[in-house]
Simulated scan of single mutants.
Amino acid sequence: MSAVTRFLRHNSLTLVFFTGFLLTLVGQAVAGHADFNNQLTTDGLHPVGFLDYLATSDFAVDVTENWQSEYLQFFLYIFGTVWLLQHGSPESKELHKAGVESDREQKVGEHAGPDSPRWAAAHGWRQRMYARSLGVVMATIFAWSWFAQSVTGVAAYNEEHLRQLQAPVSWSQYVASADFWDRTLQNWQSELLAVASMAILSVYLRQRGSPESKPVGAAHTSTGVEG
């Protein structure tokens, strides 16, 4: 097996989904550009070029509002599953393992192995930081994208208002507006529903060969068991 083939095989999950992300982002940009120009034409304004559209607040707010909801889902799921359980679900830890678990179970400090990450074997702040790094990074990306959504959202909102000869609003006014929370909550509710559905449906349904599913023959009561 060549080095390229080995790389593609070992990273196929990330590569396929990242490629899908880029393709759908391009598709969103093309569709959004057409819709944006339709709105401009309706308002009696000149349409803009594709590259000019990519620099608009309309495109930026549509992208960032999706990103922040996705990273909110991951952040809540990563932190929530430390303590929250679902009997019979492979998405949950075993019922007796709620909490941060012992150093021995987590293989940190003196329990780290020779192939453990260096900071897992460290002590003090480095181990504490690394032990929570995934959730912290997800929370940081969520906070950044939520703020970016609010900034680009108020710009897009004010541009639309100015085209209609209405007064612009401040950032704080926009964050408290129905438009902002309509954009935000419609994404949050879909993400939370998806997580809740996955947690409970995986108790009773199976997908052979998937690590997100229990083995086909596993009992419905089996918890924290992956296929």
Rank of each mutant, 00 (worst) to 15 (best):
Y53V: 02
E70L: 10
V48D: 08
A3G: 12
L25A: 14
L45A: 06
A29N: 06
Q73M: 14
S12A: 13
Q73P: 07
D58Q: 12
T56P: 08
A60M: 11
D62L: 02
A3S: 13
G44H: 04
V4L: 14
S12E: 03
V30P: 08
L25C: 04
T42W: 13
G49K: 12
F75K: 09
L54N: 01
F21P: 02
T5S: 13
G44F: 10
F75W: 15
L51V: 01
R9H: 12
G27C: 09
Q73W: 15
D58R: 10
L54I: 02
V26Q: 11
N37L: 02
A55V: 00
E65Q: 09
Q68D: 01
V26N: 04
D62T: 08
L40N: 01
Q68T: 02
S2M: 03
T41H: 01
T56I: 07
P47T: 02
I78R: 15
T56H: 05
S57P: 14
F18Y: 15
A60V: 00
L51G: 01
V16N: 01
G27P: 08
V63K: 13
W67G: 00
Q68V: 02
N11W: 13
N37K: 02
V63A: 09
D62A: 04
S57G: 15
N11Q: 05
P47H: 02
G49F: 11
L25H: 11
P47L: 01
F21E: 03
F7N: 09
L8P: 14
L23Y: 03
V30K: 09
E65M: 14
S57E: 15
T41M: 05
T24R: 00
L45Q: 07
R6W: 05
T64P: 08
Q28A: 13
F7A: 09
A55E: 01
V63Q: 14
R9N: 12
F75Y: 15
G32A: 07
F50M: 02
L8Y: 15
L76F: 12
L72P: 06
S12K: 11
N37Q: 05
Y53Q: 04
T56S: 10
L8Q: 11
